[in-house]
Design a protein around this nucleic acid. Sequence first.
DNA 1: ATTGTAAATGGGACTCATTCTCATTAATAA
DNA 2: TTATTAATGAGAATGAGTCCCATTTACAAT
Lengths: 158, 158
Amino acid sequence: MPDNFTKRAGWCQGRFKGYGYRLTLSRQAILAVLSRTGEHLSAEEIYHRVHKIHPSSGMSTVYRTLELLVQLQMVHKFDFGDGRARYELQRSKEDKEDHHHHLVCLRCQRVINYTDFIDDEVELLKRTEKGLAKKYNFKIMKHILQFYGLCEQCKDRE
Amino acid sequence: MPDNFTKRAGWCQGRFKGYGYRLTLSRQAILAVLSRTGEHLSAEEIYHRVHKIHPSSGMSTVYRTLELLVQLQMVHKFDFGDGRARYELQRSKEDKEDHHHHLVCLRCQRVINYTDFIDDEVELLKRTEKGLAKKYNFKIMKHILQFYGLCEQCKDRE
DNA sequence: ATTGTAAATGGGACTCATTCTCATTAATAA
DNA sequence: TTATTAATGAGAATGAGTCCCATTTACAAT
Ligand SMILES: [Mn+2]
Ligand SMILES: [Mn+2]
Ligand SMILES: [Zn+2]
Ligand SMILES: [Zn+2]
């Protein structure tokens, strides 16, 4: 009986192969790492975890693969403002349960996924997108909405 | 009769001095450049324009001054996803006429300021911030909301 | 105007995330 | 098995931004 992580990794691998790319050991390891975490990992953090599974993988491959996964929309790439990109696996393409936004602590870099208010937000964003697209004749492809501040642990410190 | 740009630059200089900092030629030049543009300039672009006014200014000073201006909230720093920060003068601290969000072209990097829907957006953001602050005991200090896509000129190209 | 002083500067060395290059390896189809 | 060619890993290169420090400059006090 495979656990959820393993199942998810398997599904990802299938999807990946479906696009016609070769499923190498490095790529398997990267997908495994992304599948089994809920964190927002940097390329370096991913590299370290991949290294435990498949020590001969290199940083170049990690970057290359992440870039590819982002392009295939299997992974989301975020910039939380600390100078290094973060990556997060797209869980269900059929959104709803997966769709969330982020709260980022400016002090400890903790990232909280939140789904509260998402419905209101999504509705407003859709409306805004439609209005902007028409007024500026702009094809909107994505948006970024993030809140920054101090988390519970950091706001009282020192 | 000083034009608007000159007036704005003068106002900025006064504000800057009010904080107790020395008004050097480099700083004057940087404020002048920011005052007379509506664009979202990178540090390098600012450096080039400053160089025309005051050729002996260096990049270090441009970066240092921008950092200071951001800290004083006289300038906003943005990341539009192309690997270099952009800077924009805060025009009126008393918001309203100044408050806007951004539409960013992924192809030509053009940035459009828009104020449409701003009221709705601001209201939703305020509500969301309040809810998140309570639920996650998080002190929210700022947010980022940006739309990305293809501008009028780029969407039809090839 | 002159001077004393700390603030600010400029330029070049440095950092560090990411990208590039290229000789070698390995996944897949035949 | 083998041929093909995508993918890799190591390390060099890139480039935005930061840091250091000897020199200069703004400006307050004379
Ligand atoms: Mn997330
Ligand atoms: Mn703007
Ligand atoms: Zn924190
Ligand atoms: Zn464009």
